[in-house]
Design a binder for these strands. Structure first.
Lengths: 222, 222
DNA sequence: GGCGGCATCCCCCAAATGGGTGATTTTTGA
DNA sequence: TCAAAAATCACCCATTTGGGGGATGCCGCC
């Protein structure tokens, strides 16, 4: 209720499906205090039109022709650090979620979000919050969890083997590991063979991946 | 109430301030469908009484005499994996938040949360969600943010190079990477050389360590 | 005493890797 | 439009790595 028009929340859309885009635009324009100032069907379009339109918030789809919405989000955030980006997508892959947040998204909603929740989320993100659909929040929180060592894994490694695995994970080559532990390279190699056996892997990189708790995620994105 | 009684949500409290504890207990018991089945003033008490009381959710304070609520949360989760733990505290430092989530907390609320929101959060966490106060959510989301390209350190990898680094981190050898991306092994090698140049490393394991390193700094606790 | 696990070292060999150089085509960006 | 960057592939060569042996000494444990 200030004196200028700045109290309007200016929203931009990046969504390749024209029907969905039109539907969202109408939803936003019909809501009091909200205005849809920019509609884009591709990432390229967004990178040109959004800086000009200067919205407060962008609703960003992830599945776009050519570039993904994640890359688009990253470029927009780099160019316009004050811009808030809300992902609005069907993807609930942990991998996709993390990449989007890494790229600078401030929130992550699934497309089944109701119109009322969507408008609330837009307001919330401008208040400095981080609106997320509950599944997304759960995955995010779970990503922090410290993995308990399972019986078949690293718990079985001897003390020396664990030391060597630590150094492996820091990227040292066998010679450097030997120097640091004051043992010969051949000994390091022997320990490595035992580590591989116990972890059921066959290369140092695989061992490190397992050690750092990666391994099991099978996902991807365009 | 053998089989039908199970629809009650059983809540336990761990909170050293007796007044606050009593207040919370009353709030929960007064709410239809909720029952406070256990009240604890210390972590030690919680570790004994909570397994016996078998609640669905624990509301956990962080500031406790002797041990912290974070350690208590970790021990409870280890003993009772199905138990959901909701942190309810005044601390909103990023460090405390992350440690609590690492310890296995499923949600994190600040004490200024209203009674209605608190009851909602309890229900939400049992639906598999991860209720967080908006400031907490913001900090969590920001923790994912990738550092802006620094002058000298973070060289930017091309899209293909990032894909290859992803596969590296999963422990694939060059031939497998080539197959997965439908390119020749020589091309993979070329990309790897570029990655090493840009990251200032000289082996795949080092590259993976660097790539996963930022994640580690974020996740690792002292 | 013997047995197994651990730590230490040695050798051989095939495969994978890293590093250099060069080349073509497509995509991108200015 | 035009230069830069990215993506693709090729060849050579020294080093590293993985996997297979085998050997020695130490320690804890039944």
């Amino acid at each position: 209720m200030e004196t200028t028009g700045m109290q309007w929340i200016k929203v931009a859309l990046v969504e390749d499906d024209a029907r969905v885009r039109g539907h969202l635009a109408k939803l936003i324009d019909d809501a009091p205090g909200y205005a849809c100032v920019c509609q884009c069907g591709t990432a390229e379009e967004a990178l040109v039109k959004i800086p000009a339109a200067a919205p407060d918030v962008v609703l960003m789809d992830i599945h776009l022709p050519n570039r993904s919405g994640i890359e688009c989000a990253f470029r927009l955030r780099t160019a316009l650090p004050a811009l808030r980006i809300l992902i609005l997508t069907v993807y609930q892959d942990a991998d996709v979620i993390f990449k989007a947040l890494q790229a600078g998204a401030s929130g992550y909603l699934l497309k089944r979000t109701s119109p009322a929740e969507l408008l609330q989320a837009i307001a919330e993100v401008l208040r400095g919050g981080a609106p997320m659909t509950s599944e997304v929040a759960r995955r995010v929180v779970e990503s922090f969890r410290v993995r308990a060592p399972q019986p078949g894994a690293a718990a079985e490694l001897s003390r020396r083997e664990q030391e060597i695995l630590e150094l492996l994970a820091r990227g040292y080559v066998n010679k450097e590991i030997g120097e640091r532990l004051s043992i010969g390279v051949e000994t390091v190699r022997t320990h490595l063979k035992h580590i591989y056996d116990k972890l059921h892997v066959s290369s140092r990189t695989e061992a490190v991946a397992k050690h750092l708790g990666i391994g099991l995620d099978r996902m991807r994105m365009g």
